[in-house]
Amino acid sequence: MPRFPDKEEQLHKAIIRAINNYYSCRNDIARILKANIGSVLECQGQEEILAAGKRLREIDQARNDLVNLIASGGCDEDKLDSEFEKLYAEEQQLSERLENLKLQNKTSEGTQAKLDEIMDMIEHEKFELETFDNVLIRKLIECIKVLSKTEILVIFKGGYEVRTEIE
């Protein structure tokens, strides 16, 4: 079967234009990447910090309940010594753990510098395809429909469609 290099090259250029049209939302992509990087950094260890803080409040409430029980005369304070000791030991352990988590959660100057560099790179990235890449094309595109001698319809995986002219 004969090949038509000029037509094939024109088709490749049209597909590249369609992909660049598809990725023309560069500012949206940059904004999403920045937001994701920021949220990942903010969430590192956050769940464990919140859980430790919650448990410390529960321990404080349990200790207050024991004091109220003793004050009301409902129980002898000597009988609750072991409960107070258990609460105190857990509180000390959790307080140390919470302090360590908070220290680990702070972003170092070096890490912040790297993040600033990444954010700057994202801000200035073109998000454009310049050369035809068959592997990438197969990953992005569901199918290509020939509409006429001068126009194709590129259907991306996910259903997004781009019409483009063949020069």
Rank of each mutant, 00 (worst) to 15 (best):
E167F: 06
L101C: 04
N64R: 14
R26L: 08
E90Y: 10
Q112R: 14
E130F: 03
G53V: 01
E83D: 07
I49L: 03
T164D: 01
E167N: 11
L69K: 13
Q46C: 06
M1G: 13
E77V: 07
D76V: 02
D76P: 00
E85F: 12
L33E: 13
E161W: 02
N134W: 07
T111I: 13
V67G: 05
H124S: 05
K102Y: 09
M1R: 03
L147F: 02
R17N: 15
G53K: 15
V40M: 13
K114G: 05
Y88W: 06
D78M: 11
G110Y: 07
T164Q: 11
Q112D: 14
R57Q: 10
E42K: 09
R55M: 00
H12Q: 15
Q46Y: 05
K79Y: 13
L98D: 10
A14Q: 03
G159R: 02
A35E: 15
E130Y: 04
S95M: 01
L56D: 08
T107G: 05
L140Y: 10
I155C: 00
D133Y: 03
Q104T: 11
C25A: 08
I137V: 15
E48V: 10
D65L: 04
L103M: 11
L136F: 15
F132T: 00
Y160P: 07
I137Y: 07
G74D: 06
Q93H: 08
L56M: 10
E96N: 09
E99G: 06
L98K: 10
K86T: 04
F4H: 13
I122H: 00
R57C: 05
L129D: 07
L94K: 04
E8N: 10
E165W: 09
L129V: 15
E91N: 05
E128V: 14
L153R: 01
E8H: 08
C43E: 09
D116N: 14
V162L: 02
K54I: 07
A18E: 03
R57A: 13
L41E: 12
E99D: 09
V162K: 01
N68C: 07
K157A: 02
E161M: 03
L98N: 06
L41I: 11
